[in-house]
């Protein structure tokens, strides 16, 4: 996320963050009841919710700001993850080029000295290891899709709450979009590959056995 996006996100949050980004030095870390002996100044009013922006048109908002912000987060993380993948692709290409050069060097009669040959082979081995790590890093980026789906589930529930409140109050606009298809088990989904492979394989196997039995 670049600075312009950070600024846009802060702006869209309606000024919920304090100027300067930190609490006043006198602010307590946690809320607690003041002791009776303490001289208590009348508490300053605390804004629990951000006021609407002073400028700008106020529109009926069937989506809700929080939902839009979460949607924006998923878009940004997908885009940024793809940028990481671009870099990994580039590293992979560079390593492949290095390997091709090493193969050329190995074909040169001057490289046939055993010590040189051994050193070149070690460089080749290291290049293969880098390539493997690049692929491993790419595979680990699956976490982005998992996280996106977890956020989509949160958005789904927020939309339901939003529509429920609209029904209850009889005011506002309900979301007209069709309910998206979301994973029921995404909450339990981790980021470690193949956590549930054995489970899925056993269900597939049982289904096949059942199908054969019926056949």
């Amino acid at each position: 996320m670049d600075q312009s996006e950070v600024d846009a996100l802060l702006k869209s949050s309606g000024g919920k963050t304090k100027k300067g980004g930190s609490k006043p030095a006198s602010a307590p870390a946690t809320a607690k009841a003041p002791a009776a002996s303490e001289a208590v100044a009348p508490p300053a009013p605390v804004a629990q919710t951000a006021p609407p922006p002073a400028t700008g048109e106020v529109k009926a908002d069937p989506e809700g700001q929080v939902i839009r912000e979460i949607d924006a987060v998923t878009e940004v993380t997908e885009r940024e993850t793809n940028k990481v993948m671009d870099q990994l692709d580039l590293i992979g290409d560079l390593v492949a080029r290095q390997q091709a050069l090493i193969t050329e060097i190995l074909a040169n009669p001057g490289s046939q000295d055993p010590s040189i040959h051994q050193a070149i082979n070690q460089v080749m081995g290291a290049a293969k290891e880098i390539q493997g790590k690049v692929f491993e890093a790419m595979d680990l980026l699956q976490f982005q899709d998992i996280t996106r789906q977890k956020l989509e589930r949160i958005v789904y529930h927020l939309r339901q709450i939003h529509d429920y409140i609209v029904d209850l109050l009889g005011t506002g606009l309900k979301n007209e979009k069709p309910a998206p298809s979301i994973s029921r088990t995404i909450v339990q989904t981790g980021t470690t590959p193949d956590e549930r492979k054995a489970h899925a394989d056993s269900v597939v196997e049982a289904f096949r056995m059942g199908a054969q039995g019926k056949g």
């Binding site: 699956q142 789906q149 989904t189 981790g190 193949d194 956590e195 489970h199």
Partner: peptide, 26 residues
């Protein structure tokens, strides 16, 4: 990411030949 048994069975009944739960290894 759908890992519930009933989801896997529904997919197989629809005609899926095999099933992989995300995240997966190559």
């Amino acid at each position: 990411t759908n890992a519930a048994k009933e989801d896997i069975v529904a997919a197989l009944q629809a005609g899926v030949n095999n099933y992989v739960v995300k995240p997966f290894t190559p």
